[in-house]
Write a protein that binds this DNA or RNA. Structure first.
Length: 574
RNA sequence: CGGGACGUAGCGCAGCUUGGUAGCGCGCAGCGUUCGGGACGCUGAGGUCGUGGGUUCAAGUCCCACCGUCCCGACCA
């Protein structure tokens, strides 16, 4: 491609209020333009990267036996009602009405369609299957942000495994885990697979692929000793036991003005250190108020609450809701003697006694609380947020915590969708079974952004050859100089005909501009052709990563470049 | 949805406090000089000041409403 004929609108100024570096660099480099919140036009350079990112996904999906289909994105709302996800997905689902007043939705994922398609299978002999699709998904995100990392319309590769039994599902799941590692490494990423919460997707077991980055929105807990790794939404840690002594009688005592765990601990250091208090939170789950109990020095992890209760809509109760319910304001709340709302207690409170908690009367607390004796706990659950430094639940080593970008998520779905849509097969004994499904997603544009987040320098993006929009850029220092332009054209033809993707910068610009642009858009190799070098038969070859420069003879250039590019084209190996 | 900020030329911004002829840098077009690390001179094109209403002799500027975008919190590839 000749730069003078290409549409590469680079900018010197980046959006200043945007946070994510990938957003700034992709905009400045002319890869994308924002149309609205969470909506982007992908420009020619961006399309070339996207095609390679998607191509690697296809290669690896096909390598594990995946077959691609193309389901529609516009769905009758009916099928989402059938699966129950019409309500479950809430406002995140785009809903519309057609001219016949029929309800439609725009797909967020395609479990329904794949289950319907799978209902054409009748025999265990047809299984296992791996089917996938890669196109547009719509999500009415409450808050699109960070450029391509979180948008409302994006391309997702989602695949689905269909199996007769759990063992088959496990095989398909592990095939995907390995394929995903290969895909992300070929993109140039260093992914970590972590235990995750399945959230609204349903299913039991799920694993997320995380790339370490400050632009990430997830917190990951890892143990450097035993390798334990999990999203904070699910992570566990060991809780050091607290000595509660022999136990005591329940007793009310005045606590004027003491409304926080910290204040109470400060005023009564012997009776009420934070780990001897009960933190009482009031939440509203699908419209029903509940009391949540945690150890005083522990914090709630809301996703764990959702996983434990299956509630769809979760929010903290407002003070105006709390007072009529319990008779006191936050700061003096407790669950002792509470009858109405369900009490959900964190496992760390099990068996604890001689604790302090609010008495549901402003400025009064109880001491001597024995959880088993004094509180009617309805549900015991894992609710506590794990923090860095806590001991690993496996090996007791202090845990680390870091931020990551979720580039992929794989789920063991089970039979929810196959049962809903009648996707059953008969086993060798003629008995019908619902097909066991797994579902596996990769965000294509998010993947592009993740590559940028993990590969850039002061000059701009550094694309790995495997996903670069062009493999080589020829920077013609003086396109107006006859011999120079001729030499550059010759190299362009030779490189192109040997199968290398070349962009030739033939613009009448000053060299500094062209150097800066080539670095900004991140082409892995630059060949600088100028009168000075051409006169003595050489050009300069620069590797974008590290800006490593070398002089190469004109005669050797093609073979040298070819060797480097071809060795990196596949991307990093597993 | 809650909280905060911002909408002025393609991009980045000033002007608003104190109402009175719409500005700067980059980019863009033409000519010339330059050109192996974001050149310079001259000339020029380009604006419903987010939208609607109000106050006023007069609104980019003051008031109200709406729309949009970004950032911080609850969702996900």
């Amino acid at each position: 491609m000749r730069w003078t004929q290409a549409f590469i609108p680079t900018l010197r100024d980046a959006p200043t209020d945007a946070e994510a570096i990938s957003h700034k660099l992709l905009v400045r480099g002319g890869f994308i333009r924002q149309l609205a919140a969470g909506s982007y036009t992908i420009l020619p350079l961006g399309m070339r990267v996207r095609a390679k990112v998607a191509g690697i996904i296809r290669e690896e999906m096909n390598a594990i036996g995946g077959q691609e289909i193309l389901p529609p994105t516009l769905h009758p709302a009916e099928i989402w009602r059938t699966s129950g996800r019409y309500e479950l997905m809430g406002d995140n689902l785009f809903k519309l009405v057609d001219r016949k007043e029929a309800d439609l939705v725009l797909g967020m994922t395609e479990e329904e369609i794949f289950a319907i398609t799978a209902s054409e299978l009748f025999s265990y002999r047809d299984l296992p299957q791996i089917w996938y699709q890669m196109h547009t998904k719509f999500r009415d995100e409450p808050r699109p942000k960070s450029g391509l990392l979180r948008v409302r319309e994006f391309t997702m590769k989602d695949s689905y495994t269909l199996d007769i039994d759990r063992a088959g599902l496990d095989v398909g799941f592990e095939k995907h885990r390995e394929a995903y590692f290969r895909i992300f490494r070929r993109w140039g990423l260093d992914p970590v697979d972590v235990e995750a919460s399945s959230g609204a997707m349903g299913g039991k077991e799920s694993v997320e692929f995380m790339v370490r980055s400050d632009a990430g929105e997830d917190w990951i807990i890892t143990c450097s000793n035993c390798g334990y790794r999990a999203n904070v939404e699910r992570a566990l840690s060991a809780v050091a036991p607290v000595d509660d002594g022999a136990g005591a009688e329940l007793e009310r005592f005045p606590t004027p003005g003491l409304r926080t765990i910290k204040a109470l601990a400060g005023a009564h250091p012997d009776v009420a250190p934070p780990d001897r208090q009960i933190k009482t939170l009031v939440y509203v789950l699908d419209g029903e108020p509940v009391l949540l109990l945690l150890r005083g020095d522990h914090d709630l992890q809301e996703q764990k609450l959702q996983d434990a209760t299956g509630a769809i809509d979760i929010r903290p109760a407002e003070p105006e809701e709390i007072r009529p319910l319990l008779g006191a304001d936050p700061g003096s709340l407790g669950a002792v003697g509470v009858k109405g709302p369900t009490v959900i207690a964190d496992n760390a409170l099990a068996g604890r006694k001689s604790l302090v908690t609010g008495a549901n009367e402003d400025d009064w607390h109880y001491s001597g609380v024995d959880v088993g004796r004094d509180i009617g706990v309805g549900v015991w659950a894992e609710l506590r947020a794990v923090d860095a430094g806590e001991p690993c639940s496996v090996c007791a080593n202090p845990l680390q915590r870091w931020k990551g970008i979720e580039v992929g998520h794989i789920f063991k779905l089970g039979t929810k969708f196959s049962e809903a849509f009648g996707a059953y097969v008969q086993d060798e004994n003629g008995v019908s079974h619902p097909i066991i499904m797994g579902s596996y997603g990769i965000g294509v544009e998010r993947g592009m952004a993740a590559v940028v987040e993990s590969s850039y320098d002061d000059g701009g993006i550094i694309w790995p050859v495997s996903v670069a929009p062009y493999e080589v850029v020829i920077t013609v220092v003086r396109p107006d100089d006859g011999p120079t332009m001729e030499a550059a054209n010759r190299l362009y033809d030779e490189l192109t005909s040997s199968g290398i993707e070349v962009l030739i910068d033939d613009r009448e610009e000053r060299p500094g501009v062209k150097f800066a642009d080539s670095e900004l858009i991140g082409i892995p190799y630059r060949v600088t052709v100028g009168p000075r070098g051409v006169a003595d038969g050489s050009v300069e070859l620069t590797a974008r990563r590290g800006m490593v420069k070398s002089e190469v003879g004109l005669a050797d250039l093609v073979s040298t470049v070819k060797e480097s590019v071809e060795s990196e084209r596949f991307g990093a190996q597993l």
